[in-house]
């Protein structure tokens, strides 16, 4: 039986089934909205790009929208993938000259998306 608040909190943890489904790449560029042709990134395909949380590709972009030089590029997997696939993907991105500040793996938890969408 839990004897402290911390132990009681830990005891409520619900383990979830976690599956890797994609990667959010944070890319710094002065060249405007990046483009990632399908088929050049193995099992990953760019699904959307956002800037300051607002979707800027694909679809409508207000001409009023102010953007900064930092884009979140969401790559979703087209088949089952593992961490090695992500390593290869990052290497390909770097070789193609993309300067990225961070990568965040995307998982599902018990089949539910464990990441937010862009506005």
């Amino acid at each position: 039986m839990a004897t402290t608040f911390s132990e009681a909190a830990r005891a409520t943890r619900k383990k979830k089934e976690i599956k890797l489904v994609g990667v959010d790449m944070y890319i710094v560029t002065e060249q405007g909205i990046p483009t990632f042709p399908d088929g050049e990134f193995g099992p990953f395909k760019c699904e959307f790009i956002s800037n300051r949380g607002t979707k800027v590709w694909p679809g409508f972009v207000s001409p009023d929208l102010m953007m900064v030089n930092w884009y979140r590029c969401r790559f979703m997997s087209t088949r089952d993938v593992n961490d090695s696939d992500v390593d290869t993907f990052l290497s390909v991105l770097t070789k193609k000259g993309w300067w990225w500040s961070a990568a965040q793996k995307l998982w599902t938890h018990d089949g539910e998306a464990a990441y937010s969408k862009a506005y």
């Binding site: 300051r52 102010m66 464990a114 990441y115 937010s116």
Partner: peptide, 28 residues
Amino acid sequence: NTEDSYAAIEHMVSDEVAQCLKVITWPG
């Protein structure tokens, strides 16, 4: 009205940890 934690960049980074990016930019 357009950035900060309202940029809606959130992830579950493990099955018991969530994070929300607080995005503050100079032009914003």
